Simulated scan of single mutants.
Amino acid sequence: MKLVVVSAGLSVPSSTRLLGDRLAAVAAPAATAPEPQPADTQVIELRDLAVPIAHTFTSGFPEGELAQAFESVAAADGLIVVTPVFSASYSGLFKSFFDALSVNEPDALTGKPVLIAATGGTGRHSLVLDHALRPLFSYLKAIVVPTGVYAASEDWGAEGLDGRIERAGNELAALMAGLSSTVPAPRRDSFEEVTPFEQRLAALRPAGE
């Protein structure tokens, strides 16, 4: 089982990379449960590939580390993609990577589980998940997990972020493992015994009738 994290963070350290790492820390062990070994996790830092990505659009094909990154994405059982928000949308570097990937590996994301996430300075940009990221990966024929995770500056250390990370990571793990449902079937003995209406009515009649 292989999990790949694609991070478009630019700074070092990066809150974008941190969010990707925290999501992977939940998804990787859960994807192989109850096996003792977690999924193999690889992180692709797009800031290190900025120049090769730009060259791809002029040369027509990827080289070196970028080609290896494309191969890793295509071979992954699941993806976590994280971008900082620029101008109310994903970053240009993030979009360029997936544009180049779709040109060189058109079916790389077809049917692949993808967890979308983003970071930003304010909570007002949280709609980027559903207005930009989800349509992009749906177009690329990926299976986008229901829960996306957005982390604004004020979310770090605040109540709520951990729960979203846990829920999204487990949803990705379930898709990676091929589970159809994470909700256990109800036990038969959890239902109350149903008494037919006729029996209830008879119990109310006076004796002898």
Rank of each mutant, 00 (worst) to 15 (best):
A74C: 05
I143P: 12
D48T: 13
L3H: 13
Y150P: 05
A173Y: 11
G111K: 14
S180G: 15
L179E: 14
A132Y: 00
V43T: 15
P106W: 06
V144F: 12
L49R: 09
L101K: 07
N170A: 04
A151S: 15
R200M: 05
I116G: 05
G208L: 13
Y139K: 12
V149I: 13
A100P: 02
A50S: 14
L129K: 01
P196C: 04
A24T: 12
R134N: 06
K141F: 09
A152P: 12
A76D: 10
T41E: 08
G160R: 06
S7H: 13
I143V: 15
D162F: 02
R164K: 12
T56L: 04
E71T: 11
S138T: 15
L18N: 11
L79S: 07
E35A: 13
A25D: 05
R167H: 12
A76G: 09
H55A: 14
R167A: 10
T32Q: 07
T58G: 09
E105V: 00
L66A: 06
A158D: 14
P62I: 01
I143D: 15
A142I: 04
A50N: 14
L10R: 14
G148R: 05
R47D: 08
F191D: 05
T58F: 11
A142S: 14
M176E: 06
L136K: 07
A152S: 15
P186T: 01
E71I: 05
T41H: 08
L204V: 14
L79V: 08
S7M: 10
L175G: 07
E65I: 01
V6Q: 13
T32S: 09
W156I: 08
A100V: 01
G92F: 04
S15N: 13
A30V: 02
P13S: 01
A100G: 04
A117S: 11
G120L: 03
G178C: 09
D189S: 07
R164S: 11
D99N: 10
T182S: 06
A174E: 10
L140G: 05
R22Q: 10
D189L: 03
R134W: 01
A39H: 12
M176S: 02
D130Q: 04
V81M: 02
H55Q: 14
A27K: 11
A69I: 06
F97W: 06
E209N: 15
F197V: 15
E198R: 14
D99H: 03
V85C: 02
E65C: 00
Q199R: 13
A8R: 15
G60I: 06
S7C: 14
P113L: 10
S180E: 12
G78N: 13
T182H: 02
L127D: 01
E105K: 11
D21L: 05
A50R: 15
G178P: 07
A207R: 15
P196H: 04
S138Y: 05
D162E: 14
S15R: 15
E159H: 07
E45R: 08
L161G: 07
V43C: 12
